[in-house]
Amino acid sequence: MIEMNISSLTLNLLADVTPPTQEASSGDPVTTLLMGLTVFLLAVFVGFELITKVPPTLHTPLMSGSNAISGITIIGAIICAGRADNVAAILGFLAVVFATVNVVGGFAVTNRMLQMFKKKK
């Protein structure tokens, strides 16, 4: 009995790792994770190199602008708000409200702060 369980578990694990033949490798969760980690690593390096010297007058606007970008989680929020499960959808709805305030407010506030950098002619 126990042996059977273990073997079925192994089978399950194998099923997880081996992609179904008809589907491309993108359907395999491990490959998806590795692709995600690759993208993550590269984006982290880009992020590290993107900003080098920033004058102190720009610290707050830059922080505000990148904060608005971190509101990208709105994508996840929209997906979650569409879930068939009611509780999951309500949690997703709250996420949409929060993330939208972050994105809309963030870009608007940054824009206001940056008006002072426009050259007066």
């Binding site: 998806t32 994770l33 692709m35 995600g36 993208v39 993550f40 984006a43 982290v44 390096f45 880009v46 992020g47 590290f48 993107l50 900003i51 080098t52 920033v54 610290h59 830059l62 922080m63 990148s66 904060n67 970008i69 971190s70 990208i72 989680t73 994508i75 996840g76 997906i79």
Partner: peptide, 26 residues
């Protein structure tokens, strides 16, 4: 970025980790 891994969404991973990394530099 972590939600990007949950939802398997590259745009979330990219934008999130971008802000994560550049935020540390800032």
């Amino acid at each position: 970025s972590a939600t990007g891994f949950v939802l398997r969404n590259d745009a979330l991973i990219i934008a999130g980790s971008l802000v994560g990394a550049s935020g540390i530099i800032l």
